[in-house]
Every structure is written in C-alpha cells, then in structure tokens.
Design a protein around this nucleic acid. Structure first.
Lengths: 200, 200
DNA sequence: GACGATGTGTTGACGTTGTCAACATTGAAA
DNA sequence: TTTCAATGTTGACAACGTCAACACATCGTC
C-alpha cells in the first residue's frame, strides 16, 4: 500500500527534513538548495522534481512549523479539558518554547524571508489551521475568564504579547533589555499581567 | 555635465541609503551588494572599502533603523512632557507605525537575518540606546500610571505586546486572523487592555 | 514478455553573487 | 614636489539558483 518512489524513497520529505536541520544548525544565510540536496544524498538539481524553486522548499519548512504549533495547541485541549485558563497559558508557553527551541524556523515562519504574495496552498492551509486552533483556544476562555470583549480583542491582545515575547526571545533580544531574563519566567509574568487586563 | 569625481565624497552613507531603499522596494532576497554598489554609482567592489562584508552593510542599515526609533521616542518626550500616559501610548504607536512603514527593515532589525554573534559596535550601541529610550519612556509612568511592579515587568509586558503587533503587522499576518483589522486600530485596543492589566 | 509513457534523478551549462588580490587614482601630509 | 594612505576599479574565483538535455526505473497496456 505504501507507494514508494523509486530511488530515494521519499525525497520530498527528506529534503524538508534536511533543510530544517541545516536551517537550525547553520542559519538561514548558509542554507542553500545545493547543500540541502547534498545532505539528502542527491544531485544539486534533484530538488526541482519536488519543489518549484528554493522559495517553495522554504515554504514547506515553514508549513511544517505551523503544523507543529497546531498539534501542540490541540494536544493541550486534550490534556487540560475543562480548564481553559490552563489551556491558554500553556498554549502561550508552547508558542514561546517553540520559537526558542527553533529560532531560525520561527523567523522563517514569521519573519520577512518568505514572500506572502507567493504563498503555496500548503503553507496557506497550515497557517489558517494553526491560527484557527489559536482562536479556538482563546474562545474557550470567553465568558469564563475574560471580560465581555470582542473575540478579536482577546485574541489580538494575547497573541501580540505572546508573539512579541517569542520573537524577542528567539532573536536573543531579551538580553538587550535585561541580561537575567529567561523566556520561561518572562512569559509567565507577561501573561499574568495581560490576563489581568482582560479578566472579568 | 557634472563629471563624477573618482572619489565619491561620502560613499559609506550613500551605500547605506541605497541599501535601505533597495531593501524596501525589492525585498531582502533581491538585495545584493553588487546592486547596492550599482545604485550608488560605484564598482562592485567599492563597498569593501567601507564595510568588511555584506553583513556589515546590513548591520549599518539596521542600526539606522534603531536610531530612528530612538529619535521618535525622544521626540515624544519633548512633545508630551508631563503626560507619561500619552508618551507611552504614542511610543508604542510609533513603534508599530515604523514597522508597518518599513517592514523589510523591521525584519532586518528584529528577524533572523543578522547574526547576533557578529554585531558591530555601531549596531550594538544603536540597540542599547534605543532600548534605553524605551525603558526611560516606560519609567516615566511608574508610580503614576502603573501598579507597583518591577520596571522589568512593565517594560517586558508593554514591549512584548507592541513588538508582537508590530511584527505581525509588518509580516501581513494580521490579515490571517481577521481581514478587516488595521494596525492603527489594533494597537489602540491592544494597548488599552494591556494598560488595564498594569494600571494601579 | 515487450514497450513506450511517465515520474524521478543526473549532468552540464548559464548568469549572478560575495569576496579577494592586484592595480589605479586621488588629496593631503611631509 | 614628493610620498603615502585612503579610496575606487578591474578581473578572477568558487558557490549559488535555475534550466535544458539526458538517463533510468517503474507501470499500464498490448
């Protein structure tokens, strides 16, 4: 039943895998299509059978990142059913933790590397679904945790704070403010205050 | 016909200028050292008399961005002396507005393009000074606007929310959440709620 | 079995890039 | 006037993204 393409097995997945690894270890600047191909053990033009160009490969890497985010969020719903506050807190924590663990991918997902005008369907779907999971998580707190505010306000406020902290941490820029701040503790305090502002 | 002299006059500044312009119009991917040199009217290797490598040029562009941010913040202190709430609000607005007006540079400043390990003294100083201006702005609200919280908490919370919104807006990702959200209105609402959470 | 069609990987080429070494030109110090 | 450091140019190189031409494995059809 498993249809295996003939030579490499599943080159497409292998390329995304190799690109993700190279991205994190060597940085975005050092990530070339040819190095990815070499890492996957194929010739320099082989990737073109699976991706229109380099941009498309990078989009696939980003899409994988969004899918991880979505999985985390949905997992949290299972783990903390009936405790929306915990769900939201943990979701934000996971968001920051992901960015810190894979900063290069985080910048690929949210930074100015990919051209929004050229988004593939795959990436578009991955983004939509992960954002839907995020909105759904926040929604579970509506009427229970938060004041009577538009969903948009709740999501935007929580998301902005979390996103900001995640990217500052990923870029190592928290240290420019305060050498002793670690992201884990920071998200705790920041979210506490933001919750206070939204609480009923 | 004014004949161009062999020596440019102030090539360094011209290169930073040309690079900034190219960055915003063509995007980071299309920004090559050689195109910058061409735009400045010099040969392809001339930039090496002023910058160690491409990375150093990009750092100079980023540093200029941080200096703009600092100037804005300090200008606000003059314009709204004695009104710390207004100062902070306007500072956050300016932060977002800058990111939206020059999204490519914002990503260069905060994204994963520049290697933090190789920061030039110029960039390092520009970052420190703009962050100091940011902290100073928030401090003016201490004891007046905010609950009795560590400065670090105040700065981190306000900064995270603002930074997050700024980068989401710069990346055009606000539209993934809600097609009708415009950054100007969003920062207003987000900051309102965050202020509530920090207010005394 | 034979056999093209099709999907997949390879090879070689092209123009562009970042960078370097060698050289040219300039303005100012001596 | 001579000299020299600073600044700009030229030409080279390997690595890059991309493409066209080719090679081969697999499969449906006869």
């Amino acid at each position: 039943m498993t249809r295996r393409p003939y030579h490499h097995g599943d080159l497409r997945a292998a390329l995304v895998e190799a690109a993700s690894a190279l991205l994190e270890t060597e940085g975005a600047a050092a990530l070339s299509l040819r190095r990815v191909a070499r890492a996957a053990g194929v010739s320099h033009a082989a990737p073109y059978r699976h991706f229109r160009d380099k941009h498309a490969l990078l989009e696939a890497v980003a899409a994988a990142g969004f899918r991880v985010l979505e999985d985390r969020l949905e997992d949290l719903e299972q783990r903390f059913t009936g405790d929306p506050r915990r769900q939201i807190l943990e979701a934000c924590r996971a968001y920051v933790a992901e960015a810190v663990a894979r900063p290069e991918r985080a910048h690929l997902m949210f930074g100015g590397i990919l051209d929004p005008a050229r988004r593939s369907d795959e990436l578009h779907a991955a983004i939509e679904e992960s954002f839907a999971a995020l909105v759904a998580t926040v929604r579970r707190g509506e009427g229970v945790l938060f004041r009577d505010l538009p969903t948009r306000d709740l999501v935007l406020t929580l998301w902005s704070a979390t996103h900001g902290l995640a990217l500052l941490a990923a870029a190592g820029q928290l240290h420019d403010l305060d050498r002793t701040t670690d992201p884990e503790a920071a998200i705790e305090r920041v979210l506490g205050h933001v919750f206070d502002g939204l609480a009923r």
